[in-house]
Design a protein around this nucleic acid. Structure first.
Lengths: 164, 164
DNA sequence: GTCGATTCCATTGACGCCCATATGGTCCCA
DNA sequence: TGGGACCATATGGGCGTCAATGGAATCGAC
């Protein structure tokens, strides 16, 4: 598998170490990034983490804005300015900085959630709520999407047209 | 055969393992995906399972949304974040995670239902109810479809719908 | 020397892999 | 055409390996 999928809930030990799930580590290894790139989520009490794929996305986003624009400066500050590159120890664990933990409200447990090219780190209870909301939104969104996809023949995925 | 067809009801053993029907395994093998990709149904107490074909459908869906939109984030959370890539043991069995079983109300038996490019996993009794309702709905739909197809002769999907 | 950080080692429990059994269906042959 | 050998799939359990976790040991810096 070449992307972050599924979710895991792991504990922080007395030294503040958290295990990165083995499957996530496999993706990172393939991605070829040394360590773990982490930054606070822009609009959620969560952390975004990943490797080169995530960095690339951020670069692309910044590149899409004009060099000296205020937006770019703000975005650069929010993303790059607050990022951390965490070391991964021999057992596949990282130590989150205090500011990162504070942003996500993390104390002694985290939920790591796959998002394809990156993954998020949540305080478990916050994630439950976020997931509930996401599901609710998606139920509505799905109807809209179904209509949109049906209306744009070329974009409909291969064989199976209808969703269930 | 290159799509999931028919339905099977199998038991979970004491370790929570379920056999994937041989015919489904054949489709997966042709699809070329290692393991089984599974995610909770968005609007039904069932699980969606499949291989690259299913993954491709999800990718297409996510790709149709702008990278940093809320919609995309929610969809990604609900789909990728709750997905599992299950390993298939040498006997063709998988172990469903607790959260997957909880979502579908699965305890010791499941019904696997072919849906062409993917298949669903249901708690047998839930599926019976779902089937009854589906049948009722189809009776109405059929009239509509019959009318539509009759009106657009060329659009009827002949024998072989191109596989993926 | 003390404190912090990083690496090493040990434990536990889950998971993957192996082999064994049961059951149903198919095919062959008398 | 009926009976029986054969095969494939579903199912059950035992065992080794790996990952998550906790704590000890080592290294480096101030």
């Amino acid at each position: 598998m070449d992307r972050f999928v599924s979710n895991f809930t792991n504990r922080l030990d007395s030294k503040g170490r958290v295990s990165i799930p083995a499957s996530f580590r496999a993706v990172l290894a393939r991605d070829g990034f040394e360590g773990l790139y982490v930054h606070p989520g822009l609009d959620a009490p969560a952390l975004d983490a990943g490797g080169n794929a995530l960095l690339g996305e951020i670069d692309a986003l910044l590149a899409s804005l004009s060099p000296y624009s205020e937006e770019r400066d703000h975005l650069s500050t929010a993303l790059l300015g607050t990022s951390e590159v965490l070391k991964i120890d021999p057992e596949g664990r990282v130590i989150l900085t205090e500011s990162l933990k504070a942003h996500a409200g993390i104390t002694d447990t985290v939920t790591l959630v796959g998002h394809g090219h990156k993954f998020q780190i949540w305080e478990p209870e916050h994630f439950r709520q976020h997931l509930d909301e996401a599901r609710a939104r998606v139920r509505d969104l799905k109807k809209t999407l179904g209509a949109r996809l049906a209306a744009r023949p070329g974009s409909s995925p291969p064989p199976g047209v209808p969703g269930t």
